[in-house]
Design a protein around this nucleic acid. Sequence first.
DNA 1: CGCTTTTGACCAGCGC
DNA 2: GCGCTGGTCAAAAGCG
Length: 290
Amino acid sequence: MPPLSALISLLVPRSSSSSPLRESHKEETKSLIKEEVGALRAELNRVSKENEKLTEMLQTMYVNYRSLQSKMAELMTESSEKRSVSPSASASPVKKRKSESLETNSNIVADNPNGMINFIRYHTETTSSCDSLKPIKDDSRPKISKVYVRTDASDSSLIVKDGYQWRKYGQKVTRDNPCPRAYFRCAFAPACQVKKKVQRSAEDQSILVATYEGDHTHGQPSRPEKNNGTAAIVPPTPTKKKACRSDESPEIQWRLVEQMASSLTKDPTFTAALASAISDKMLDHSPSRS
DNA sequence: CGCTTTTGACCAGCGC
DNA sequence: GCGCTGGTCAAAAGCG
């Protein structure tokens, strides 16, 4: 990313002349640029504060989710204990597809009433509390995680922009949902066995449900700039929680601001608007116009 | 021309 | 064993 000062120096031509008129114009331009920079910084601060608020909201949601999950786990343990008392119940094996549907039903579509969060992700670990109901053979199953993405209901594409490259290898209409389900494999590394299923929610067709199976054996090939305006908020996992805390060091906060600035300057619309605004201001105050 | 997507065929698991 | 269903394969079509 080119620094803002470099961008400005490109837009503002350097003059070798030192006439008083030129000098005053130069000063005027400088003050204008300073004003612009100040306004941009204020905007950046505003956005970062908004981001902090969203992060806090997300943390609250995550804490609520965890407490619900632990309650669910307690209930599950209780019910499994009761089952183990009853010999008829423990004798019936849970079949593969049954367990999958059970898992899906236990997941609730997380939605924000404000519509601010449209990308919710959480993991369904193989070592989850629900394992008490699963047969032992399921231990070898890959890690499954689900992502709910709010999209435009009119948008028929089954694309979930998560930064990874995916190759579609199939599509199928399932019995319980009139919307087709798309099957993807990780296209970045042939050895990477991660699979993704994407299907619109039967209840709310504006929600895309992406199911990830397994872990990537490589790093993320591309950053989320691919999202191009699609808000993507991932709730903090226990290990990542620290990075999302509001009381983190100023260095980290500054890095976050830098990242935001970077993403803004990478946006061609933003840079074009910035260049246009600066050039307009320059032309407005140019001596030829007066 | 090579890569990606589409789509019908095929296969395996499950219920009856 | 048969039918249903979800998941995968692979040839054909599409696209840059």
